[in-house]
């Protein structure tokens, strides 16, 4: 039988999906044990025991100095920044994206501006943000907003323009005003598509968050891994990185779940 016709059943699917993860784990275990055999104090590839110890220390033991469970307080600090920034970004992008995508006048006015502005590397703006807004939460949130909103705006504007012309004409023949077309025809159809765009922006959002936290912060997941880097604490960095990855993955799943629940029509409309 040809390879293209062999389809794994459900059990095989799960099993096959586990293989790459297991391979990475095994490769790490081998590398770690080889290095530790040579030098029991090696810090680069700590054993699973050392990592578990560090997790216990950071996640389940009160910090002696602050009385906090550091991993959780870092998570709360980072997620507060990330989620508020993504929410602000989504609202801005929805407004401007629909405005630009829908109205030729707005497209002429703002289209080229956003096309140019979205080419500015957001990280290069970070010093400006720190100078103007200070080192507090505002500058970190602003960085994420700038880094994600401009791309979201362009994406949403394109999605709006993809809505078939026939629907816009049809709405007009039903007597809809521009405002009514925006609120009842375009926005509800763009919302689920915006969730797709937002899912793609989760990665960049984490990138900007960690960059901002690495440079100036007193809490947060990015702050912590850059802090312990000074002591080559791979036993802390590795679980933090895995934790960040899990958080990002869960956010992605959550957005997909919301899309399916809140917009039951969307799967069928996309398929046809």
């Amino acid at each position: 039988m040809r390879a293209i016709n062999i389809k794994p059943n459900r059990g095989w699917h799960v099993l096959l999906a586990c293989i790459p993860f297991l391979l990475v784990l095994v490769a790490y275990a081998i590398g770690s044990s080889l290095r530790l055999a040579e030098n029991p104090n090696d810090k680069l590839l700590p054993g699973f025991g050392a990592i578990a110890e560090a997790v216990k220390q950071y996640a389940f033991t009160e910090d002696a100095r602050t009385g906090l469970y550091l991993m959780w307080s870092d998570t709360v600090a980072s997620l507060a920044r990330l989620l508020s920034a993504l929410a602000i970004s989504a609202v801005i992008a929805l407004f401007f994206g629909i405005f630009i995508g829908m109205l030729p006048l707005a497209r002429s006015t703002f289209g080229p501006f956003f096309a140019v502005a979205s080419m500015v590397p957001p990280l290069a703006l970070l010093p400006i943000l720190f100078i103007v807004m200070g080192l507090g939460e505002a500058s970190k949130i602003a960085l994420i907003v700038i880094g994600t909103a401009l791309k979201l705006i362009r994406d949403i504007a394109l999605r709006v323009q993809e809505i078939p012309r026939e629907q816009i004409i049809k709405a007009q023949t039903l007597g809809a005003s521009t405002w009514q077309i925006a609120t009842r025809v375009i926005t509800p159809q763009v919302l689920p598509r915006m969730l797709d765009a937002l899912r793609l922006e989760i990665g960049p959002a984490w990138l900007f968050l960690i960059a901002a936290e690495a440079i100036a912060a007193d809490s947060g997941l990015g702050y912590r891994i850059f802090l312990v880097r000074r002591y080559l604490s791979m036993d802390v960095i590795i679980p933090y990185v895995i934790w960040i990855t899990i958080l990002a993955f869960v956010m992605d799943m959550a957005l997909r779940w919301v899309q399916g629940r809140a917009f039951p029509w969307f799967a069928g409309a996309r398929a046809s």
Partner: peptide, 21 residues
Amino acid sequence: PEPDSDRGVVFQRYSVFPHLT
């Protein structure tokens, strides 16, 4: 010079709104 409610239309495709029942 623009579509209005005095003229109805049915297209070959995309005539109805997919997000409404």
